Amino acid sequence: MSQSVRASADSLIERLRTRFGRRAVALCLALLIEGVLLLALLSLAPPFSPPKEVKMTTVSLDAVSEEAQEEPAPAPPEPSAPAAQPEERPVPQPPVPAATPPLPLPPPVIPLPSDQMAAADISTLPQRPAAKRPVMGPPDIRPSGDTPRVDGSGPNGEPLYAASWYREPYDSELSGYLSTASGPGWGLIACRTVPNFRVEDCVAVGEYPQGSQIARAVLAAAWQFRVRPPQIRGQPMIGEWVRIRIDYEMRRGG
């Protein structure tokens, strides 16, 4: 077998020599020999083992001074305090009674004659009249007494009474009608009172100046009037006739 290995090695060397030259063959042989030597050295070296750790024990001793080891000397006994002497308490003195003030003397009595005694009697003085209490409730706005009659009569001879406004007409309620009349002046009409302070069946009574058409304008606006019925013996007489006068004044603007 060694011969076959040697023969194969010789053939390999011969081929290398033929192909690369003698120097290359010598270099390869040197490397091969060094590798074999290195393997031999490694096989002969002893196995490597890591160093063992050495444990060290440290002992620490505290130095104790000789003064600390000595026991303390016993303290001398404290002197006893002197016994407390009893305190002397003051003897309470009896209270001194307060001086009683003298009683005031009664005022002197002055005798009065009988006529002065009678004048000083308050029971004979006139008493003040009691104040009147205010009457609570809504104010009485009804006209007092009977409604006075006025000149003239209704269309069929009915008596006429002076009109009392329940609410006076506004300027806006009259201006549209009076704008068709010629003023200044006044218009006079007679109307029959009906419930809810209204008037109906109004007729013209007179106007000033004549032909001013103020009475006609007042008749047209009478449906808006709110008039109280006349009162007779304190009772409202709805259905009686009243006389109404409207004054038409010309107002200048500005």
Rank of each mutant, 00 (worst) to 15 (best):
L12V: 14
L12Y: 07
I13G: 15
E14Q: 11
E14D: 15
E14Y: 15
E14N: 08
E14H: 12
L16G: 09
R17T: 13
R17A: 11
R19V: 07
G21L: 04
R23I: 13
L27C: 11
C28L: 10
L31A: 11
I33F: 04
E34I: 08
G35Y: 08
V36I: 10
V36C: 09
L39Q: 08
L42M: 06
S43F: 01
A45W: 03
P47W: 06
S49Y: 11
P50F: 03
P51G: 00
K52C: 00
T57Q: 07
T57Y: 06
S60M: 03
S60K: 15
D62P: 05
A63E: 04
V64I: 09
S65G: 06
E66Y: 02
E67P: 01
E67H: 04
A68W: 04
E70S: 00
E71L: 13
P72V: 14
P72T: 10
P76A: 12
P77E: 04
P79V: 10
S80L: 14
A81V: 09
A83G: 12
Q85K: 09
E87Q: 02
P90Q: 06
V91E: 12
P97M: 01
A98C: 03
A99N: 03
A99S: 03
T100P: 01
P101K: 01
P101N: 02
